[in-house]
Simulated scan of single mutants.
Amino acid sequence: MKKKYTIGETAALLGISTQTLRYYDKICLLSPGFTDENTGYRYYYYQQFHFLDRIRYLQSFGMPLEDIRKIIHSGSVDLLLPYLRKKREDALQELKEMEERIKDIEWYIDYFTYMNKGENIDNLYKIQKEERYILSVPCYYKEQLAQMEIRLAAAKSKNEYTQTKFRRQYGYKIDLDALFKKEFYPREYFVYFRGKPDLDRTLYDVIPAGEYLCFQTQALSENWDINMLTKYFEHKPKPKLVLAMEFEDNLVDYADAQYEIQILL
């Protein structure tokens, strides 16, 4: 059995490029163990193969070569273990972020398909909603929607929210009396947080959990049927919270977007 292998032979046997081996040598990570004094050719000993295999294995964890160099040269498991534990924590954090990203994608799919089911058009229906968390800004009577959007964009960009995740659905708290007059009058414009934010309570608002009476309409066109609302609330207490939740059906123009009106019962 051969004991020494040229750089080319080593590269072929282990599936490593010769450029990679030469780079390992350049940064003093692992150098050929034998140099022929007559020819100047350099060789790796067979016993060095397991070092190369370990280097590649540690690289597969995303470990930098400089850290691998320190570990390999120390020859100590005691130095390796803290690095492995740190990489494990990093991987767990990446996994958590990936799981959250998947949830966001699933939520966005549902956002675009929720109104397409077509089961509740022109009907009143009830839904149960969990507590929701929002960032909101005030709106003013007959104000252009663009002004509300600019105000909310400025609020989202504040330093307090730099590390906070939002979900891309916008909505309004709307005036109840105006609703019954077939008038769209937003009191507040808001966007959802991904979940309950880890912020001072003064920096976000809470939409209460509960049962909501709903109907779907093109809210900005003010074309809903007020008769069905008047009839429903004829002998019932006046609700205190009305939301208009936007559901886009295209990526260009939201003026004719469908809204779900949610009335807290």
Rank of each mutant, 00 (worst) to 15 (best):
Y172G: 04
Y161M: 13
R132Y: 07
Q93G: 10
A154Y: 02
L95I: 13
M98R: 02
Q93N: 14
F112C: 05
E131W: 04
E183W: 12
D200N: 12
K165V: 14
D198C: 10
T162M: 14
K158N: 14
V137R: 01
D205Y: 06
R187G: 03
F193Q: 02
K87V: 00
S136Q: 07
E183R: 14
K173D: 06
E143N: 10
S157W: 01
R88D: 11
E131S: 11
Q163K: 14
K117F: 00
E89Q: 14
Q163D: 15
A91C: 11
E149G: 07
Q93C: 12
E183G: 07
Q144H: 12
N159A: 12
E149K: 13
F193S: 04
Y185I: 09
V137L: 01
Y140M: 12
K156T: 09
F112Y: 11
L124H: 05
N159T: 08
D200K: 05
K117G: 06
D175L: 02
V137C: 04
K165S: 10
Q128R: 13
V191M: 06
D205I: 02
K158T: 07
I109M: 04
A178L: 09
K96V: 13
K196G: 00
P138V: 08
E130V: 10
L135S: 05
L176N: 08
R168P: 05
A153R: 08
K165L: 14
F190N: 01
L199F: 05
Y125T: 08
K87M: 11
L152F: 04
Y192I: 07
E130N: 12
T202F: 01
D200R: 05
L203N: 02
G195L: 06
K103S: 13
E149F: 02
F190P: 02
Q93L: 11
M148G: 00
L124F: 06
Y204K: 03
C139W: 08
I105F: 09
D175R: 03
Q93K: 12
Y192S: 05
Y125R: 03
F190K: 10
G195D: 14
L145C: 05
Y141E: 15
E94N: 10
E97D: 15
R88P: 11
K142E: 15
C139G: 09
L95N: 13
Y161K: 12
D90Q: 10
A178T: 13
K173M: 08
Y111I: 01
E100A: 09
L203D: 02
K196P: 03
E119W: 00
L199G: 01
M115P: 03
P138E: 09
Y204A: 00
R201H: 04
S157C: 12
L124W: 00
E89K: 13
Y140C: 10
E131T: 15
F166S: 01
D104A: 07
K87A: 09
Y141W: 15
I105N: 09
L124V: 05
L179C: 10
K165Q: 09
K129N: 05
R201C: 03
K181E: 15
A154Q: 14
E130C: 04
G195Q: 14
S136N: 02
T202P: 00
